[in-house]
Write a protein that binds this DNA or RNA. Sequence first.
DNA 1: AAGTGGACCTGCTAGC
DNA 2: TGCTAGCAGGTCCACT
Length: 271
Amino acid sequence: MPELPEVEVTRLSFADRIRGARVTGVRVGKPLRWPLGGNVDEMIGQRVGEVSRRGKYLWLALERGGLLMHLGMSGSLSFAPRVAEPGPHDHFDLVTARGTLRLTDPRRFGAVVWSDAADAPPASTLLAGLGIEPFDERFDGAHLHTALRRRRVSVKSALLGGEIVVGAGNIYACEALFEAGIDPRTRSDRISRPRADRLALAIRQTLARAVELGGSTLRNFRDAHGAAGEFQLDAKVYGRAGQPCLRCKTPIRRVVQNARATFFCPTCQKR
DNA sequence: AAGTGGACCTGCTAGC
DNA sequence: TGCTAGCAGGTCCACT
């Protein structure tokens, strides 16, 4: 589920509240994608520092080391002074004097990994190879064009890979390509510089708008306050197969690329 | 080497 | 109404 906007909305919804809180306990539920690693006792007594984001990962800094968190496909974080007894999908609790940060993740593709530092393994290993942040000023049409020319996959696959630019998953890759007027099946090395300019802008604008709208709640995404997102109501193509394009009325098409559903308007988006 | 497809795990929904 | 196949926001890994 969670793409960059959902992760950023989550971060913004609890970072200020948890900063400075002292860790008093840790509870681990069923196994997630990777083992927590390290010694739980190391975390007890430490103060929480900044919560930062890299791609779809969150880094929750402690005084010594920190936790790298990923929401996978179905994860969400909540932070509240009082929490209910953990349910069957609550797989990690970081208990602090100010409240409990809880990861709820039915499919368990998410993860919480202890690391000595964000630039030390295993965190550094997981973050290695990630592309540029879409809101980094160095991310522009020139950067995107150069990177796309080195690949021979579809432009949509190139975006989803996250090695060129992070953050756009299946929803926002589809939406950004619609905004840029580019057919998602176009080979990445055939994208001209002007189209790369438009695409870079579309990626940034789409992700920024999604953050403003609180992300997309298709099923179970909530921010740390429990609020749902509203971008899904604003999607132009994602999940709209067969429905008329909001711009030209042509029915939106659904195709499968790399085992992922892709939605696009065959009239507004050109190869 | 780069590209493709399967695997991970659970829940929900559309269709019979 | 009840069962089941198919599908879901991500990413790693094996194979070609």
